[in-house]
Amino acid sequence: MTLFNAPRGARNTVQRVFHKSILLAAFVSGIASANAVLALDIRNDMGGVVSQRMAKVEQLRAAGTRVRILGTCVSACTLYLGLPNTCVSRTAKLGFHGPSTRLQGIPLPRQEFERVSRQMAAYYPSQIRGWFMSEARMRTGSYYTISGAQAIAMGARPCTEA
Rank of each mutant, 00 (worst) to 15 (best):
P107G: 05
Y124E: 02
Q59P: 01
G148D: 07
V17N: 01
I22E: 08
G130Y: 09
R61F: 14
A92L: 03
A34G: 13
G98D: 02
R129S: 04
P158G: 04
S100H: 08
A149V: 00
S100I: 07
A63T: 03
E114I: 08
G30H: 01
E161S: 13
S126T: 07
R118M: 15
V37F: 08
L83V: 05
A121L: 12
R110I: 15
A26L: 15
C87Q: 07
A25F: 15
Y144T: 12
Q15P: 00
T145I: 06
Y123C: 00
L79K: 01
F96S: 01
G105E: 06
M154V: 00
R11D: 01
T65H: 11
I42Y: 04
Q15I: 10
L70M: 12
K56M: 14
H97P: 07
I128A: 02
M1C: 10
F18C: 07
L23D: 14
E114K: 04
L24H: 03
R61D: 13
G98L: 07
P125N: 01
L60N: 04
S100R: 14
C159T: 09
A36C: 09
T101N: 02
T140D: 09
P84N: 08
S33N: 08
Y123I: 00
V116C: 07
M46C: 11
C73T: 06
K93Q: 13
E112Y: 08
T160V: 15
S75H: 15
G71R: 02
G47M: 06
P84F: 07
A25W: 02
Q104R: 11
L70F: 02
W131H: 05
Q150L: 10
Q127S: 11
D41I: 09
P99S: 03
V28G: 03
T140K: 04
T101E: 04
N44E: 09
R16I: 08
R90A: 14
M46D: 12
V28I: 14
H97F: 05
Q119E: 15
M46E: 13
V88N: 01
A151Y: 02
L38Q: 15
A121K: 02
N44F: 13
V14A: 10
C159L: 11
A39E: 13
N12C: 05
V37E: 15
F132C: 00
A26T: 09
R139I: 13
E135D: 14
R43A: 15
L70S: 10
L79T: 10
W131T: 03
F27Q: 04
K20C: 15
I31S: 07
L79G: 05
S21G: 15
T65K: 06
A92W: 01
F4Q: 10
T160D: 09
M1E: 11
I106E: 12
M1G: 13
R61T: 07
